[in-house]
């Protein structure tokens, strides 16, 4: 596998259950999944269905109960150890005692890459945080924090990007703007991207493919290709796909109404 090319991701018989014999909870039923190299795939499903579990298993942050994950022939651990993988977390996970600049630079340090202040500042400008380099996370809005987190993900120039509801804690307006601005940053960089989200429109707007999971234990109930030109804008075509995904989501759920 060429080091700089985006790798495909292969999940074989992947499952995760928690607890012991008596009180066993299946978070993820065995799934077979393949994500093509360089593609952006959105994973949608109802709250608590195991989306994040799937992502964590792919990142190697959690150990599968059965099955395996191969990323371009390597294990997730090997990928992580050569800093070819970045994760964006729901809560941004910025360290409060570091500035924006410091948080982004930390990723290079953790990835054992040489410091690169110029790239750090360029990325900060790119995500629209110029002028906030020396602010701490507490001084930033939710949207600004997520921008900083995305910048941190990109500073190590990863081949695999795992986004765990990165805009989940951001208001709808900001979210729409981030959806519009940020994907351009990694699309075209040659990155295999997985995006976990519970927003159908976000999934359609950002990805090449949407996978719909059922409520826990998660199964794949739909696998929808999104053939929309980029840059994307809302319109009839997008609305139709959104309706498609929403339909699949509704059918995956049991007949009783889901609590919010």
């Amino acid at each position: 596998m060429q080091a700089n090319a985006p790798p495909p991701i292969q999940c074989r018989d992947l499952s995760r259950s928690f607890g012991h014999a008596g009180a066993r909870v299946d978070a993820l039923e065995p799934v077979e999944l393949h994500f093509a190299a360089g593609e952006t795939t959105a994973i949608v499903g109802p709250s608590g269905c195991g989306k994040s579990t799937l992502l964590r298993l792919i990142a190697g942050l959690d150990t599968p109960s059965t099955g395996s994950v191969r990323i371009g022939g390597e294990t997730p651990l090997q990928m992580r150890q050569r800093a070819a993988l970045s994760v964006a977390f729901q809560d941004a996970a910025l360290l409060p005692w570091r500035t924006v600049r410091g948080n982004i630079a930390l990723a290079r340090k953790l990835a054992r890459l040489p410091p690169d202040p110029a790239s750090v500042d360029r990325l900060i400008a790119l995500v629209g945080l110029a002028g906030f380099e020396d602010r701490r996370p507490a001084d930033l809005s939710g949207g600004m924090r997520q921008r900083a987190a995305i910048a941190r993900c990109l500073i190590s120039d990863p081949r695999v990007l795992l986004l765990d509801e990165p805009f989940g804690a951001v208001d709808e307006l900001t979210r729409a703007r981030l959806n519009h601005e940020l994907p351009a940053l990694w699309q075209g960089r040659g990155v295999t991207t997985l995006l976990v989200t519970h927003s159908v429109s976000e999934a359609v707007m950002l990805s090449d493919r949407v996978i719909v999971l059922s409520p826990r234990p998660a199964r794949v109930v739909a696998d929808i290709a999104i053939d929309l030109a980029r840059p994307r804008a809302t319109g009839a075509e997008a609305d139709a796909l959104i309706a498609n995904v929403t339909e699949a989501l509704a059918q995956s759920a049991p007949p009783r109404p889901q609590p919010a």
Binding site: L61, R80, R82, A83, S86, F89, A93, L95, L110, S156
Partner: peptide
């Protein structure tokens, strides 16, 4: 410290020691 801070460290393949230096040390101050 929230689990995601430790996940962040682990997501770059770093272990307990990095978590101690980068996260725990400051979080415990």
């Amino acid at each position: 410290a929230p689990p995601s801070w430790f996940d962040l460290v682990r997501s770059y393949g770093r272990g307990r020691f990095s978590a101690l230096v980068e996260v725990r040390a400051m979080a415990s101050l």
